[in-house]
Design a protein around this nucleic acid. Structure first.
Length: 666
DNA sequence: TAGGGTAAGTTTTTT
DNA sequence: ACTTACCCTA
């Protein structure tokens, strides 16, 4: 089993509880972060001390890490960090001389891998961590090795990537040929001018000057909006206009620093009826109902995965409560076996585990359920198996009994999952359940939906690395959003020195994704954690040279002949420890606020073809009635026919997505 | 043990 | 805003 970050957190919480470590003082995420850093450096978790952590965290984290790692292995599980570390371990193992008496004619698959490649090319080499680098070296033992990277685009320092690896490459590979690439074939001149203005403030860089033969192109635009809803609406309106003008949706992208920012944009896109694809974020496979189903499937393959067993032993509720699970855990710990192995020894172990008669009966019932599913799994039809799991476990029953919108959606998600599984079996007829589950653990949305060219792309800047689009909207250009508050605070209290430089490189990456049109937006106030905060424009905006970037006002304001934006501050910026613009920029930017109602680039569709099957006209802004929530306003919709879902805003209950067949015109 | 209610924590970025 | 954790009652 591959444990994702949610699994890791659950496991670590358990470990901390067992070791009587206060999770408030030593947050599980923090310890997991140390473990990951160790693994990324090729260190065993016992050597967390080598990361330079202070006592008492050092010894506490080490203790927790050792138990965590033991627990992983006992469950036949690996976390993401292990995947690389284990691969390196495997490949390094062949350094040892063969044991005496080894069969020489027996081909060694590992040695085969190490000798297999004649040419190895690594892209984005600036973002590799030491373990990845080691892997490259092991696989390229007898190959010609070519690495490509840009020190200005190093944005993964926080997960152990080490730029010095690309900088030190010539040292480690004497006589290698260095090719500098300074001609840019992607972006027009003004965009490159802005990119250069942003990145040139960094100290720790080799330095280069990009040039392009594509001409100046259009100036980069900076737009001020009142809040994130207006920001989103402005962008949606423009995007709708672009598409109406015949631009490819796949050539348009909206970037943000954090996933949390996607919501407002998604809502606005929904209103405009724009198709979009969100990359990363809460993935389909992270949904509860899917995780439950996957946990059952994983258990069938690997019943020793304790975490999965704990997850589903009482899902849906079958009378196995917290107390029972705790007794099981205690006993399993004492015996040094997995929960599943303990279950297999019931009822013999009942007394030793202090389990009552009722509990034993239910647990044995669960055990037999799982065993029956394991027998079915041998036949190999995965789609059939998934349906059996849904039926025999009662998952489907539990979801359909609950007559809420959420439950209906969950049921649909589950169906979608089974559909995907069937599709997988058709494409890989010889693959087993284990193969599918592995694919699920490692899949990202970017892998799965890459082909969706009919949709506008919404993603974090990190995900955008390596991609390019004709139109790029870079949103949330505000202090404490981008650069992110966490980084600013860390720099402030000295925890991390180079954090701001990495944010700046991230800004550079974002800017250089655009081929022809780049628009950056910032908002005067933003709602975060349910609270409204007044914001200031990002320092990355303020440094943009006026000859390449213009502050846009609303069109009406421009028509009335407002003065041109003030020149950018001439004062030499203090080194990145402070906001580096004077108030003039901020005032001008606020003054130039674009209002959606002035003259939106495109109107949201008022009235569209009836989407409901019975010909009830459906339009944005329409009033509908719902049995439970009362009267609400239609903000948008998705799906069609029987599955048509309305996005509704209720005065009392907020925004909900509800199947249209549960609503009627008010 | 289940389920409802309230209090508290959460969010940086990814494989 | 939204989720999880914890406590209480039936």
């Amino acid at each position: 089993a591959i444990y994702d970050s949610a699994d890791q957190k659950t496991l670590m919480k358990q470990v901390l509880r067992e070791l009587n470590i206060d999770a408030k003082v030593y947050p599980p995420q923090g310890i997991l972060g140390l473990i990951d850093r160790a693994k990324n450096r090729g260190l065993p978790v016992s050597r967390i001390a080598a990361l330079g952590v202070e006592e008492p965290l050092r010894s506490i984290a080490t203790r927790a890490a050792l138990v965590y790692q033991a627990r992983l292995r006992a469950s036949d599980a690996a976390d993401f960090g292990d995947l690389l570390a284990l691969a390196v371990e495997l490949l390094e193992g062949t350094e040892k001389p063969p044991p005496p008496g080894a069969q020489l004619h027996e081909p060694d698959p590992v040695m085969g891998l190490r000798r297999r490649f004649q040419h190895v090319v690594v892209d984005e080499y600036q973002d590799t961590n030491p373990v990845q680098n080691r892997l490259v070296e092991l696989l390229s033992g007898r190959a010609e090795l070519c690495v490509v990277g840009d020190d200005d685009q190093a944005i993964y320092g926080w997960r152990g990537a080490d730029v010095s690896q690309i900088l030190g490459f010539p040292e480690r590979h004497r006589g290698c040929q260095i090719i500098r690439l300074e001609q840019n074939y992607r972006s027009t001149g003004h965009i490159l001018g802005c990119a250069d203005a942003v990145i040139s403030k960094n100290r720790g860089r080799l330095g280069k000057t990009l040039w392009s033969e594509l001409g100046d192109g259009e100036k980069v635009r900076v737009i001020t909006a009142a809040d994130e809803r207006e920001e989103a609406t402005l962008i949606a309106g423009e995007v709708a206009q672009h598409i109406a003008d015949g631009e490819e949706p796949g050539e348009i992208a909206v970037f943000y620093r954090t996933h949390a920012q996607s919501r407002a944009i998604e809502e606005a896109f929904g209103k405009y009826g724009l198709r979009y694809a969100v990359y990363g974020g809460l993935r389909f496979f992270d949904r509860k109902e899917i995780k439950d189903l996957i946990a059952y499937l994983r258990l069938i393959v690997n019943p020793r995965a304790d975490l999965d067993l704990e997850r589903v032993v009482n899902t849906p509720a079958r009378g196995v409560g917290k107390a029972t699970v705790e007794r099981l855990q205690t006993r399993a710990l004492v015996k040094g076996v997995s929960l599943w192995e303990l279950l297999c020894e019931l009822p013999d172990e009942a007394d030793a585990a202090q389990l009552g008669k009722a509990a034993v009966k239910r647990l044995v019932g669960f055990r037999e359920l799982l065993r029956s599913l394991q027998r079915e799994a041998e036949d190999g039809d995965l789609g059939h198996l998934a349906h059996l799991v849904l039926d025999r476990t009662g998952l489907r029953e539990a979801l359909s009994r609950e007559d809420s919108v959420e439950a209906t959606t969950r049921l649909e998600n589950v169906q979608e999952f089974v559909g995907a599984l069937v599709e997988f079996t058709e494409e890989h007829p010889e693959a087993g359940l284990a193969d599918y589950l592995e694919q699920v653990s490692l899949a990202t949305d970017a892998d799965g939906q890459g082909a969706d060219v009919g949709a506008v792309t919404l993603m974090t800047i990190h995900s955008a690395k390596g991609l390019e689009f004709d139109h790029v909207y870079l949103t949330g250009m505000e202090e404490r959003v981008f650069p992110h508050a966490r980084v600013l605070d860390e720099v402030q209290d000295g925890t991390r020195h180079d954090g701001l430089e990495e944010e700046r490189r991230l800004a550079y990456v974002a800017v250089t994704r655009a081929r022809r049109h780049l628009t950056m937006t910032w908002v005067c106030e933003r709602r975060l954690y349910g609270q409204v905060a007044v914001s200031r424009p990002s320092r990355f905006l303020a440094g943009l040279p006026p000859q390449h970037a213009e502050l846009m006002g609303s069109r009406n304001a421009a028509a009335r002949g407002r003065p041109p934006p003030r020149p950018a501050p001439t004062r030499a910026p203090a080194w990145d420890d402070d906001i580096v613009y004077d108030d003039g920029y901020e005032q001008e930017a606020r003054h130039r606020r674009a209002r959606v109602d002035d003259e939106p680039a495109a109107e949201p569709p008022r009235r569209r073809r009836p989407a409901a099957e019975e010909g009830v006209p459906l339009y944005i802004g329409m009033s509908v009635h719902h049995r439970k929530f009362g009267e609400g306003e239609v903000l948008g919709w998705e799906g069609a026919g029987h599955n048509l879902k309305l996005v509704l805003r209720f005065p009392g209950a907020g925004t909900k997505t509800i199947l249209a067949r549960y609503c009627e015109p008010a």
